Computed example of a mutant assay.
Amino acid sequence: MTRSRRDLPDHPAERLVISGYRNMMAALDLGDGACWEEIWRAFTRELGPEDARRTVGEVQYWVRTLRACSARALGFYPQCSGLLCEDECMALTLVAAAQAGDASTGCEAASLLTGSGEAARLREVWQASCHLATALTCSGCRMQACPLFALRTLN
Rank of each mutant, 00 (worst) to 15 (best):
L113E: 10
N155Q: 11
P9F: 03
C130R: 03
L148Q: 05
A97R: 00
A109V: 03
A109S: 05
Q99T: 12
L8W: 13
A91H: 01
L30T: 14
V95Y: 01
E37V: 08
R3A: 15
L122S: 08
L112M: 07
C130G: 07
Y61M: 03
A97G: 09
A68H: 03
S104T: 12
Q99K: 01
F43P: 02
V56F: 03
C69R: 07
T65F: 00
H11A: 11
S4H: 04
T153V: 12
L112T: 03
L84P: 04
D51Y: 09
H11C: 05
E118K: 00
G75F: 07
M90T: 06
G20R: 02
R22G: 10
L84W: 10
A135Y: 01
T93Q: 06
G48T: 14
Q60P: 00
A135V: 03
E88R: 06
T65C: 09
A103N: 13
E108N: 01
G48E: 09
R72A: 06
D32C: 03
A110L: 08
P78N: 14
A145E: 07
V125A: 11
V17I: 15
P49H: 11
G82A: 13
N155I: 14
A71I: 15
E46G: 02
G75W: 05
H11I: 14
R142G: 04
S70M: 08
A97C: 10
A42C: 13
R72S: 08
